[in-house]
Structures are given as C-alpha cells and as structure tokens.
Amino acid sequence: MDSLPADIPDPWSLGADPSARRIVVAMSGGVDSSVVAALAQRTGAEVVGVTLQLYDHGEATARPGACCAGRDIRDARAVCDRLGIAHYVFDYESNFRAAVVDRFADDYLAGRTPIPCVQCNTGPKFTDLLQFARDLGADCLATGHYVRRVGGMAGAELYRGADPARDQSYFLFATTQAQLDYLRFPLGGLPKARVRELAAEMGLGVAAKPDSQDICFVPDGDYAGLVRKLRPDTDTAGEIVDLSGRALGRHRGLIHFTVGQRRGLEIGGQDEPLYVVRLEAESRRVVVGPRRALAVDAAQLSGLNWIGGNHHGPLTAKVRSMAKPVPAQLIGDRLVFDQPEYGVAPGQAAVLYAGERVLGGGWIERTEAAALAA
C-alpha cells in the first residue's frame, strides 16, 4: 500500500487500524474527486465510490462541461476500476430537478439571483449521499471540495481552502455541524495544479480533464434559455424604469437580468452608465440607476446557519462567490456592513467568516439601500 504524499496531512482520522474502516467518496467523474478516491484507497480502508446521476442518461451523455453526467459516470467508474474499489451509481434525476433545477427557475422568475450549487450541496450531496454513506456503515464521506476541516474543542470547524483561487467555502455555508463532523475534504490544503500532478502520478485517466462549469446543468451559460424551457410562460416583456419610476425603455423578460448588470439594457441618451438596481417581479419592472444606487448598508437574511460556536468577535461577510469578505456585524438576522457594499442581490448568500474560519451564513432576502452619494 502506498503512503500519502508528504504534502498532504492525514485528513481521515480513522484511528489506529484504518484497514478496519470504510470511506465513501462522492465521485463526480472529475479530477478532484478521483484524486480523493485514490488518496482514500492509500489508507488501507475499504473505499466505496458513489456517483449521483443527475440527468437523463441519453441527454447527459451529450452535455459538455457538465458534471454527474454520462461521460462523467464512465470516468468515475474507470477510476474505481483502476483503484480496485467498488463503484455505485444512483439515479437522483427527479430529486435534483425538484431540489435544484426547479428552484433555480422559480428564483429567477421572482427576481432573485439563485445559487444552485448551495442547494445541490445541502440536498442531494450532503443530505441524501451522506445518509447513504451512514447506511453503508462508513466512517466518513469524502468529497473533492477545496475547503479545510479542522478539529476543534467543540467539534470540526470549517475553513477556507488554502488556495484562494479554488476556495469553495462560500458554497458550503449551509453545512450543519453534524454533517461537518462526518465529512472529510482532503484537497483543502492544496492548489489545483498539485491535484492534477497527483492524478498524473497515480495514473488516473482524468488528470487533464477540464473542470466542470460552475452551474453544471447550464453548461452553455444560457440561463434565460433554460428558464424559458422550464417555465414557457415566463418570457414576459415589461418596462425599464429609473429610480423615480419614469419609463426609459422595454425589456424582453426579467429572466435576462440580475442586480448589478449593466449590459443588455439598450438604453441610450443617458448622462451616466445605468445598472440594474432591483427587479420587481409582480410588475415585471427592471429598475435601473447609477452605480451609487447599488450601494447597500444592510441585508436581511433568512435560513441562517451557524457553525461558528460561541464566536462573538469581529467578522467579515462575503455576499458573492467571487467577492472579497468585508467587515460587517450580524445583529439577529440582519447583516450590517461597516461600509456600503455593492452588488448585494436577493437570492444570493451572505457567508460569514472570522479570519479564515467559516462561521455560517444565510440567504439574502432583501437589502437596505445606502443614502445616495451627492
């Protein structure tokens, strides 16, 4: 049995006799989860790879840039065959459609900006798959997410991935303490380049496989097209208005816009660039204004999940997956920013940190506009 590479601390905590243990690995068919499976196999524990089929097999086979699809299932199986471990595939298409895809469409119709990756993690991956791992009697469920799990006095703690370019902690804010205690993230301390090196060294055929898209079920990036397909009556035109309600033009449907968007408004003759400030679903209006109108002082949160223990010190908040955390205060379920923040959109998540540690987070329900600059 090969040992773990020297630059990977033992993430498993399996005790003195790993050969008596069982690890279930969530395998999407990509390089990350494949390396996790290979690292798990090196512990000497019994390893079981599990893939969730999230799309119709015939359609999935032709989906470039997706994950958990036809080719990915074959890749996951090939990796398991090479490693000599068991591999199971479960059809979760209907669950995924109800928990993730339908909600994605409905959020867009309500003028919200959805994050389906969070629903996928808290639904099919970290609820259904985790229960399956427990039913198998596994000691842990391992995934290829780029986050760090560190043992703490009151249980496991979640930290940002060591590589800022790959950190996925924003998408895992809804992980519960019980889930975190059971989960393992072996790649959290590594850069992606090192993971690909490991895949090549281990002889895995997916070593050079491209990464999947952020939203796997929209590989071509045409969100509006998907929503239109799922909800055919949604492409309803409406007015584009300024902050005072004055009509400036027409739009082809709310599904084409998100808060902070500048392109695609097709409004000429204005003194300064205009941005989408908010979407009013009931009236089908797109409200636009200058960039300063995007400034937000506070946001009301729902579904607040806390895994930060008794933390009472300063915290920072991240309101978009690619944004930098900014100083803020959490007062009940109201997040108050130390300085006005831009691009805060209902439907997105606000994830809270103490340094590198993830404290939790919640869903942005509505925002409180800052006083407009003169």
Rank of each mutant, 00 (worst) to 15 (best):
123 G>A: 08
124 P>Y: 03
124 P>M: 09
124 P>V: 04
126 F>T: 00
126 F>E: 02
126 F>D: 05
128 D>W: 13
128 D>A: 13
129 L>T: 05
131 Q>G: 14
134 R>L: 11
134 R>I: 11
134 R>W: 07
135 D>H: 13
137 G>C: 09
137 G>Q: 11
137 G>N: 12
137 G>L: 11
137 G>H: 14
139 D>K: 07
139 D>V: 08
140 C>E: 03
140 C>I: 03
142 A>H: 01
142 A>E: 03
143 T>L: 12
144 G>I: 08
144 G>M: 10
146 Y>G: 00
146 Y>P: 00
146 Y>V: 04
147 V>G: 00
148 R>K: 14
148 R>H: 07
149 R>A: 15
150 V>Y: 04
150 V>M: 11
151 G>P: 04
151 G>H: 14
152 G>T: 09
153 M>P: 13
153 M>C: 07
154 A>P: 00
155 G>D: 07
156 A>Q: 12
156 A>W: 06
156 A>M: 13
157 E>G: 06
157 E>P: 05
157 E>I: 08
158 L>M: 13
159 Y>C: 03
159 Y>S: 01
160 R>G: 09
160 R>A: 09
160 R>Y: 03
161 G>N: 08
162 A>F: 07
162 A>S: 12
162 A>C: 05
163 D>F: 05
163 D>W: 08
163 D>L: 09
164 P>L: 11
165 A>E: 15
166 R>S: 15
166 R>L: 11
166 R>N: 15
167 D>M: 11
169 S>K: 03
169 S>M: 06
169 S>E: 06
169 S>T: 14
170 Y>E: 11
